[in-house]
Design a protein around this nucleic acid. Structure first.
Lengths: 124, 124
DNA sequence: TACGATACTAACTAAAATGAAAGTATACTG
DNA sequence: CAGTATACTTTCATTTTAGTTAGTATCGTA
């Protein structure tokens, strides 16, 4: 199977193409949350303690650009913007779940338990 | 769901953990090939025209370290080393296929066709 | 005696992804 | 009038990932 170009970028295979759209540290966490409910910028941010404003903005833009989420702006002050998942976005959920389940398996085998609040290296 | 540490590295979720093991440009292409047959270093390299020696070596080491592939050295000159997929490695194949199928869908929607040998931007 | 073949290592560079901090706009509140 | 809130944008710095180039060891062959 051959390489291909799209939007001036070279891909070696379909997996790479898929991960270009939904990979990276933040895209799946965002889609995961928006699949459960419509959320505002600040709400998303609070739910992901480590993300920076810049990252959240740019990832939301990317996801919107690929049609996975929708952005709705309310003309109020202070600003209010709501993000929701689209039908296209919902199609990545099964993929995400496959990856997540595989990750959970690997974690279990590695002896990692993630209960609410605590996680990490083994306990006595 | 909380963050967790493993091998001195911080992860935010199971997906990230999974992609740390099988993500990146080369790991899935390698597993994909080794799932079909046992291959030597140079054979793998020929089948992936863009990879460098260094990348191939380090990715093979990572995959071996995570138990997804096995390395068998023959004491001959010039050196001969064979790589094969393990049972653990076979478990990533369905995940890979899910990702691949999703990528193929996205490509189709984007109007990308990848026939043997040719690929890329639209044709007249 | 130099060369080719194989499976690497090492040193270095470049590119991409991520992060931290500060700034912008507007209206309301005390 | 200072402070707060929201959803950003901008700039600069750092980290991570990937790629380039050259070199190593050994033996058989020309």
């Amino acid at each position: 199977m051959g390489d291909f170009m799209y939007n001036n970028k070279l891909y070696y295979n379909p997996v790479e193409f898929a991960l270009d759209k939904i990979g990276g540290t933040w895209k799946m966490p965002i889609l995961w949350r928006l699949n459960k409910k419509v959320m505002r910028f600040s709400e998303l941010k609070r739910s992901m303690p480590h993300i920076s404003d810049k990252m959240l903005t740019s990832q939301l833009r990317d996801l919107e650009g690929n049609g996975f989420i929708k952005r709705k702006v309310y003309a109020v002050v202070p600003p209010k913007v709501e993000y929701s998942i689209t039908e296209d976005g919902k199609r990545v959920i099964p993929v995400l779940e496959t990856l997540r389940n595989f990750g959970l398996e690997l974690m279990k085998e590695a002896g990692i338990e993630l209960k609410k609040g605590t996680a990490g290296t083994a306990k006595p």
